[in-house]
Amino acid sequence: MLDQFLYGIEAAMNGLMTGIMYSLVALGFVLIFKASGVFNYAQGVMALFGAMTLVSIQKGQIPFYHLINATFGTDIKYFGWEVPALLAILLTVCVMILFAWLVERLLLKFLINQDPVILFMATIGLAYFMEGFGDLMWGSDLKVIDMAMPALGIPGLPQGGSLFIENATSGLGTDRFFGFFIDKLDITAAIIATMLVVVLTVFSQYSKTGRALRAVADDHQAAMSVGISLRTIWVIVWSIAGVVALVAGIMWGAKSGVQFSLSLITLKALPVLMLGGFTSIPGAIIGGMIIGVGEKVFEFIVSSSWFGDAMGFTMNATENWFAYVLALIFLVFRPQGLFGEKIIERV
């Protein structure tokens, strides 16, 4: 029984880490939603696009090589050099900022003062466009992320279980308990996500631009009236969201390879948002944790043999739907989410 309990805890801890990975995606949503009231459906694709760009730049891949080959009958793919990871990250960040600027220029500019639904539809269009554009630019083959930075002494993103935790905890249970298995990548992601949240919170609470972002989130018109340029703010917000998407893309890409299904993490971020609230940065993190832990622990319980003995049935693959059911319950009882913006009502 002790072992069972410990395995439960292990499941919970793994859930916590996965949850933080969800939060990374949800974070990008929250940023854009707060500043422009737009639910950015393209956030997941942005993560995919960011990760794709990063890997391709690293490998020195020629953009649009398919197109070039098809048009000119050539057979090229690589420039023939490799870009160090750190430089590639910087270049990708520049690409994401350029992308944000283009989105504002070509899309948002024309949709000022439109219904949120119209903006939402525009982001759906954007998502599908980017998906195709990313494939066209970098090819649709599965890419592997390699974050080795020899200059900084970083051998790359850690993979596999943490031996340290495993050894430290192996004494807890009986002989058949081998200690907690926790993925090192998940731990890294958790640390990075925490750092991101701290940086973003400090930025939005204490900097002048952060204050302007919150002002725009509250009241577009009033923000314009005091001379805050909405268009500048939108470029800033989409840039930040692009960088957050890149981080999410790197983490998820390292976990499951950079390929199309990466963009579907959008769908995992949705319940996180409903739980945490669309407008709260800490909410995105805690919502992610609750969902991560919830789905792992729930799965652990309902698929265990003792649950089967007691109830007469077991369930599997509950992770596929657990988050959505939880989100649904939240929508009924607390629509603004756990940490959603206070609905201010003066009496």
Binding site: K208, R211, A215, D219, A222, V226, G227
Partner: peptide
């Protein structure tokens, strides 16, 4: 100064005033 007040509800009074100095 817009009609109907239009303050930034979720910002403190202090922060509201500071947004005025944005430019």
């Amino acid at each position: 100064v817009m009609e109907g007040r239009h303050v930034f509800e979720h910002l403190t009074v202090d922060e509201n005033l500071m947004t005025g100095a944005y430019t």
